[in-house]
């Protein structure tokens, strides 16, 4: 019985980053902010994917990233699968920079996120423009990325708390 509870506890701890990321995805579409918020609402799961790709890639595997991308596409009514593609590429790119980013001070870590988020925004803009066969305005994505960068430290704090509760690898 003790063993069972222990494993249950362990399972929850390992699943927590994923659950939080799914919650962030849902939170992203709730009309929380002021009028017109929807267009600028930050894509919160991006910060989660970035954080876990650097710190503990195992708790945020490709399959979970794929699922989160799909969920976001379904909820927003965007082109189905596009966010999944972008998030998978985003994760693998960040993992490529893992060696450089681990152990760096928070500021460097944050700068890394801003650059990665900007790149993500640029690719998303290109993909959306291609899908719509017109040149879409880039400003909304730029604003969105700025807000994402601003909330990153707050989310980072949440992720650090989660990471403390994770078992040693």
């Amino acid at each position: 019985m003790d063993m069972f509870l222990h494993r249950l506890d362990l399972g929850f701890r390992l699943a927590a980053p994923g659950i939080v990321t799914v919650a962030l995805t849902l939170l992203g579409v709730v009309p929380l902010g002021p009028a017109g918020w929807g267009m600028l609402a930050p894509f919160l799961p991006l910060a989660a994917v970035y954080y876990w790709a650097v710190q503990r890639p195992a708790v945020m595997p490709n399959s979970l990233v794929f699922a989160i991308g799909l969920l976001h596409d379904v909820l927003t009514g965007g082109l189905l699968g596009l966010t999944a593609v972008l998030l998978l590429l985003f994760r693998s790119t960040v993992i490529g920079q893992r060696k450089f980013l681990t152990g760096k001070p928070l500021f460097v870590y944050w700068c890394g996120f801003v650059m990665a988020a900007l790149a993500y925004g640029a690719v998303e803009w290109a993909a959306q423009s291609l899908a719509a066969l017109t040149l879409l305005p880039g400003a909304p994505l730029l604003f969105r990325t700025m807000i994402e960068a601003a909330v990153f430290p707050v989310l980072c704090w949440v992720f650090i708390q989660l990471q403390y509760s994770l078992p040693e690898r």
Binding site: G38, G77, Q128
Partner: peptide
């Protein structure tokens, strides 16, 4: 009742 503002940068929709 509007329960979700699923507008993204390139979508204008509500749920």
């Amino acid at each position: 009742r509007v329960v979700a503002d699923n507008s993204g940068a390139y979508v204008r929709s509500l749920a």
